[in-house]
């Protein structure tokens, strides 16, 4: 349903994405993992054109877009079929929770106030924030804000939801509530592309793991084939790093 071919992007002389091919089927949960600065987030942002790729092709549903010749209309169409959940939540600061979820529906989908309200209440109920409708984002915790932003994305009924490190800006004790909400979204059969450093979570929910390094896709496959059965040296090194971090660092090493 979502298919990216030979996606290339550079910042000045620095090549960030070196020809990415990615296939996402309907109902897939695709997780992009890899070291920082590898281009995972950049790739995700290319899907709804927050980054402008130099070259490449994207097919999404009935859209078939050549990034080199993309028109304003196509950009809008692409963005309206996708929805992004940002690391920093990016709720509209001047609007309440309910307005944050309602307004995009009224503006982008021309829904009536009543319709938008009903969808919004439904979505906010699912993320457990029905009692915060009239709060402003500044009055909410990071975890609550991120849940609102997930509700805002889902209220638009997108074809694909893009999660850009949704828990990376959160206090450790708030990570759980957001992951739980994402898990619920997964259970509805929504198509998802996710960038995360929560490896055990990725392993649990993903139908497909994509391991990226230095602007390339090194290896992709099912959760099991990457996390347990991978024979690729680079993949193993990266995943090992996660294990050693968690298990083998002693107090003495930390304070050395």
């Amino acid at each position: 349903m979502l298919s990216i071919k030979d996606l290339r992007l550079s910042f000045k002389d620095n090549e960030i994405l070196k020809g990415i091919d990615l296939e996402v089927n309907k109902g897939d949960v695709v997780t992009l993992i890899g070291p920082s600065g590898t281009g995972k987030t950049t790739l995700l942002r290319c899907i709804n054109y927050l980054e402008k790729p130099a070259k490449g092709n994207i097919i999404l549903d009935d859209l078939n877009i050549d990034y080199e010749k993309i028109t304003k209309k196509e950009i809008l169409a692409l963005r309206r079929k996708t929805a992004m959940v940002f690391q920093q939540y990016n709720l509209f600061k001047n609007k309440t929770v309910i307005e944050n979820v309602m307004e995009p529906q009224m503006i982008v989908q021309r829904k009536s106030r009543k319709e938008a309200y009903e969808t919004s209440v439904e979505q906010l109920d699912k993320v457990g924030l029905i009692d915060k409708l009239e709060s402003y984002p500044s009055q909410l915790s990071g975890g609550q804000q991120q849940r609102v932003s997930i509700a805002r994305a889902l209220a638009l009924k997108p074809e694909v939801v893009l999660f850009d490190e949704p828990t990376s800006a959160l206090d450790p004790e708030l990570v759980g509530e957001v992951l739980k909400v994402i898990e619920n979204v997964v259970s509805t059969g929504m198509t998802i592309v996710l960038v995360t450093h929560e490896m055990s979570f990725a392993q649990k929910i993903s139908t497909k793991i994509v391991f990226m390094d230095k602007g390339n896709i090194v290896e992709e496959g099912s959760s099991k084939s990457i996390f347990e059965d991978s024979t690729n040296a680079r993949t193993k090194e990266f995943l090992n790093h996660f294990n050693t971090n968690k298990l083998n660092v002693t107090k003495e090493e930390v304070y050395a």
């Binding site: 927050l50 929805a83 992004m84 990016n90 709720l91 509209f92 995009p104 982008v108 638009l156």
Partner: peptide, 22 residues
């Protein structure tokens, strides 16, 4: 903030709608 622009863009606001509403 940049993020306010990006949020509106990613949701599919037209530039004029983004300016007026956000």
């Amino acid at each position: 903030e940049r993020g306010q622009h990006e949020a509106a863009d990613s949701l599919g606001y037209k530039p004029i709608e983004k300016f007026r509403k956000v």
